[in-house]
């Protein structure tokens, strides 16, 4: 049991350090690589909470698909580095102070209201999750498939915007001639 605690604190240190890396690194590629470490750390936290199917989904969907998409766009766009000095403004300092005070106010509340005794174990394996997903949550599942199709078509339409606008320009030009 002490091993589990040590593992948890090591993992949370890793997650928080790499999440700070995402925010702090001026170069977008380094931020993305830190994001991969964070996502895999979150997958390990899921494993500690017995959510085995979600570990696989987290690694495949997040660390596999989404981060690769982000890296692809970062490398496609040839971005400039941000200077850390430019980031400090009145608005950002106010936001950081507000959030930190909220964080400090939240800690005692959580420790008081969630004691450790009521912890139960459920195993989130693929069979139980699948039964729930195709039984109780079937309607939500169908809505999710609609959402994915809408996002797919929307992404294609947005990414092709330049092509259609140049075509319209050409048509408008030929119309005036």
């Amino acid at each position: 049991m002490i091993f589990q605690q040590v593992l948890f604190y090591l993992l949370s240190f890793l997650i928080i350090a790499s999440a700070l890396g995402v925010v702090i690194f001026p170069c977008a590629i380094k931020s993305t690589l830190c994001l991969i470490v964070t996502l895999i750390g979150v997958a390990a936290i899921f494993a500690m909470l017995n959510a085995h199917f979600l570990v696989a989904t987290q690694v495949i969907v997040y660390a596999g698909a989404i981060v690769v998409l982000v890296l692809f766009v970062v490398m496609l766009l040839n971005l400039k580095k941000e200077k850390l000095r430019d980031l400090i403004s009145f608005r950002s300092i106010l936001g950081v102070i507000l959030l930190t005070s909220l964080l400090l106010a939240f800690f005692p509340l959580v420790i008081k209201h969630f004691p450790s005794e009521e912890f139960q174990y459920v195993h989130g394996n693929a069979e139980d999750l699948g039964r729930l997903l195709f039984g109780k949550f079937l309607f939500a599942f169908e809505i999710a498939s609609f959402l994915i199709i809408a996002a797919l078509l929307g992404a294609i339409a947005l990414a092709q915007g330049y092509k259609t606008s140049s075509l319209e320009k050409r048509e408008a030009g030929s119309g005036s001639n």
């Binding site: 989404i66 766009v73 766009l77 929307g154 992404a155 990414a159």
Partner: peptide, 13 residues
């Protein structure tokens, strides 16, 4: 995942 696809397309635009 849906947000990643649409958001990155918006960033490219």
């Amino acid at each position: 995942a849906a947000e990643a696809a649409v958001g990155l397309a918006i960033i490219i635009a």
